[in-house]
Write a protein that binds this DNA or RNA. Sequence first.
RNA 1: GGCGACGUGGCCAAGUGGUAAGGCGAGGGUCUGCAAAACCCUUAUUCGCCGGUUCGAAUCCGGCCGUCGCCUCCA
Length: 472
Amino acid sequence: MKPVKFFNSLGRRLQEFEPLEPAHVGLYTCGPTVYDRIHIGNLRTFIFEDILRRTLRFFGYRVTQAMNLTDVEDKIIAAALEAEVDIDAFTAPHVESFFEDLAALRVERVEHYPRATEHVAEMIAMIERLLAAGYAYRADDSVFFRIAADHDYGKLSGIDLDQVRRGQRVQSDEYGKQDARDFVLWKGAKEGEPEWPSPWGPGRPGWHIECSAMSQKYLGKTFDIHCGGVDNLFPHHENEIAQSESANCCPLARYWLHSEHLTVDGEKMSKSLGNCYTLGDLLDRGLPARSIRYLLASVHYRQQLDFTFDKLAEAGRALKRIDDMRFRLAHEAEKDGDSASLDLAADDFENAFAAALADDLNTAAALGAVFTFVHAVNGFIDHGLPHGARARVQAALDRADQVLAVLDAGEWAGSPEAGGGLSDAEIDALVEARSDARASRNFAAADRIRDQLSEAGVVVEDTPDGSRWKRA
RNA sequence: GGCGACGUGGCCAAGUGGUAAGGCGAGGGUCUGCAAAACCCUUAUUCGCCGGUUCGAAUCCGGCCGUCGCCUCCA
């Protein structure tokens, strides 16, 4: 098994990855709060996590992953109240659209999608342990985590709470606490809000406790990798560590990986700027899901990525270069080419690709290797394709695509509008008719057919071996 | 105020001590009845600026300029 290196936010350094159990990885990834349709920033993180998961498998690990669904939280409660439905009815369509969006981008289903509302008992149990150990205290009907009792609080984010500005936001907090820095574990019930019974009276869990309780249930007290967007580093992940490690007296996760944010046209996404695109917004504009996945995966996960429509179009053109090579490869006859040197090119590609992924998931370099290989294969197509070349190239690309999931256009089919409604057989007939016209030097007729096909979105390519076509 | 990231060709983006991957674009070429499509070639003596360390720096150190993010809503 090849050593894989990750940049661990905990300690802020590149580390060789070693799982707790041989060949098995426990992975926890913070999931969505299901109060709205997720936006492309969320999708960037989920695609990063998907590539992490696929990369681990690529290197021979079995992966057990849990992604939570936050289905009870302030925004949800407020929105459900306004819509006059209970929170389950309110969140259901958002859960559904979340899964649809992931599927549209070929993000794999993970093993567990625990919901906060179904794990309140586990959260209560953890809060009880924290109370018993003196890490938590009750105030009014709520329970708070006592940061002063946690001596290594801040070790993930490097934050020094004494240096943090004490803003008005803390003063406006609705719940009483002893120290402004403390955070809530359990919120006492309020009129009209959903509530669960607890030893401290009815109420609902705080946001941070859900991940601590659910990761423990599905992955154990200590697991391998915890991921999320950088914004979660503080306070969410810091608080998860505080809760879990105080309750369990062992490390929560050994590696913490955080993906950088997506900006749009150089600015942070926000509703007021109107640049909070959802996948649906982009698909409605006719933009291909495949280009979206490519763009979001093409920049290293720890780099900010600025989303623009121009880049999305560029992504489509880059993919076309891959598609064109595969199209040419499929139509080119194998003959006595230099198969040893083709094998060498394929080996070089596979090695460079794997090395890039093993280096902290360097997808940009991995794609660079893909294009270098595309260039090499084009050379073989031009100068003589050896026997067995198609299978060898196909195998190399397929293996890489187990991680990237963008290299095979066929896997993304589903835009039948291309081709203008003409069936393959109809197109074949037209192309043949045009060839006949050309053969009899009736170029006017040939060009009419070419124009007709062009309007239908079909490109005819004339090669020394005859004409062939593809959908644009 | 505290913490952190980034600045590489026209645009995007790898590379973190050994002499600049890759994509898009642009220019040229091949092919063609003409085209188109595609492919091929070319396109950074240089990595924000100034100093320093070194045989050698885009890569390390110091300073400066600029951009961005987080600091308890946030992927």
